[in-house]
């Protein structure tokens, strides 16, 4: 019986397509190394093509991007672009926000978040171009 709030793959669903997953990893990795951000925005739709349901795709993108981020971060630290201590003043907020997001994942309707986020990105892009 379909449960519209269910976001898990079940035994009845086909196994995820490894090719699309590999592509999701590569796209996320490239953006992650190049921009230090944006990997999830590439990974989520590609994981969807691999057969993952929406929230599983969002959650899995985090699992994929975490080890990738460690590689990129290693590069940035070694090149001296950033130091570990630079993150201290942002850390309490990050931890709070992460916990809140983790708890909220099941309740939030994704579509409105996407639209608001999309609007913000466009505004930001215009500002960056004009800088």
């Amino acid at each position: 019986m379909a449960d519209r709030t269910s976001n898990h793959t079940t035994a009845a669903t086909p196994p995820p397509n490894r090719g699309w997953i590999a592509l999701a990893g590569a796209a996320a990795g490239l953006l992650n190394g190049l921009f230090g951000a944006g990997g999830g925005l590439a990974a989520v739709p590609l994981l969807g093509k691999a057969g993952l349901l929406t929230k599983a795709a969002h959650a899995t993108s985090i699992a994929v991007i975490l080890p990738i981020s460690l590689i990129s971060l290693g590069g940035y630290l070694m090149a001296g672009h950033v130091a570990v201590g630079d993150g201290l003043r942002f850390l309490p907020g990050s931890l709070l926000g992460a916990a809140a997001g983790g708890l909220l994942m099941r309740k939030i309707p994704p579509i409105w978040l996407r639209r608001i986020f999309g609007g913000f990105l466009i505004w930001a892009a215009v500002r960056m171009f004009l800088r």
Binding site: G40, H58, L91, S94, G101
Partner: peptide, 14 residues
């Protein structure tokens, strides 16, 4: 700022 960014990141929205 960090809380907002982390909240959105934890939802897998980049």
């Amino acid at each position: 700022v960090a809380a907002l960014a982390a909240l959105v990141a934890a939802l897998g929205l980049g």
